[in-house]
Design a binder for these strands. Structure first.
Length: 312
DNA sequence: GAGATTTGACCGTA
DNA sequence: TACGGTCAAATCTC
């Protein structure tokens, strides 16, 4: 999924619309000045915008492929690559003995390989979840030291944790986040959408193109720093590949508030293609919106879809 | 001895 | 066919 320039812009447009709507909703959330109905309209519009973006991304993801691909989530023995949800982080560590320890992201990983990668000065290490055998967790990550700055590690995550440690971690986070005002979540979720999708593993694109970025963890509120990325001396920029919609550490990126997804089945595997990801996101929409029947400008979205289709 | 890491070989994809 | 990702035997650590 490389040459998707036009659809990328289209997705940006849709996501930008979502951000605008989210900001508007934040402004309207003062109960003394706005009716519940007005908020509902905005929430629905926001979710529709994200749904449209997902649909566009699905189009982008499907179109270039001429041969059928197996879905990783349904074929766990498949060695086919690039079908896993995938995203990367740039982790900056301070030098010293604790350097490697700062790469700890709260999960238990087991190293299963290391390779010298062409054009890079440092080998790439391959890790899989420790609970792969015991709980069938298929999450993996790749860690590679950056050439230009050896204090920066690029961490590429693939697949979603389905193991118990993920559930425990999310339950803990959820409790922390629930203590904060839901209204803040909305504006912060929208502000996290920085740029459009692209191949984030291509350093050239990283420089030349804006990025479509989500947090590496469920950062729905700027005052809540996920516990396992809270160490000092670290900065993380998370950037997700075009084929990725729901990072392993969270399913709630397209929900306006974590308060609305408490009962979402976080253990459900999202190691899948777009169709499955979308199907997993849908319950969030249903759960939070109920029977509201409001959508964003249908004509606009249709034209975006046509743009994407025409591109291929 | 169990579990983790290392490393060369193997395999699928582009 | 080169490259990247995974496997699995050997080795290491606790």
């Amino acid at each position: 999924m490389d040459k998707v320039g036009v659809p990328e812009k289209t997705v940006i447009t849709v996501l930008t619309e979502g951000k605008k709507l989210a900001n508007e909703l934040k402004r309207q959330l003062d109960p003394s000045t706005t009716s519940r109905e007005a908020c509902d309209v905005l929430v629905d519009s926001i979710l529709s915008a994200y749904d449209n973006a997902i649909t566009l991304l699905a189009l982008i993801g499907d179109a270039p492929s001429t041969s059928p691909r197996s879905v990783e989530g349904s074929d766990h023995n498949s060695k086919k690559r690039k079908t896993m949800p995938r995203w990367s982080e740039h982790v900056h560590i301070c030098s010293g003995a604790r350097g490697e320890a700062q790469l700890d992201d709260g999960y238990n990983w087991r190293k299963y390989g290391q390779k010298d990668i062409l054009g890079t000065n440092h080998p790439r290490a391959y890790y899989r979840c420790t609970h792969r055998n015991t709980q069938g967790c298929l999450a993996t990550k790749q860690v590679q030291r950056a050439d230009e700055d050896t204090t920066v590690f690029e961490v590429i995550y693939r697949g979603k944790h389905s193991c118990r440690q993920e559930r425990l971690r999310q339950n803990k986070e959820r409790k922390e986040q629930e203590s904060l005002a839901c209204s803040k979540h909305i504006s912060n979720v929208s502000s996290l959408v920085k740029t459009e999708n692209r191949d984030l593993n291509d350093p050239k694109e990283e420089e030349d193109l804006p990025t479509f970025s989500f947090p590496s963890t469920p950062i729905e509120c700027e005052n809540v720093e996920p516990q396992f990325f809270s160490e000092p001396n670290r900065f993380i920029t998370a950037s997700y590949s075009p084929s990725f919609l729901s990072p392993a550490t969270s399913e709630s990126y397209f929900s306006p508030s974590p308060c609305l997804v408490n009962d979402f089945d976080i253990g459900h595997s999202l190691e899948s293609d777009f169709g499955e990801i979308i199907s997993n996101l849908t319950p969030i929409t249903d759960f939070s919106l109920g029977e509201l029947d409001i959508s964003i400008d249908a004509v606009d979205f249709e034209s975006h879809l046509l743009d994407a289709i025409e591109f291929f």
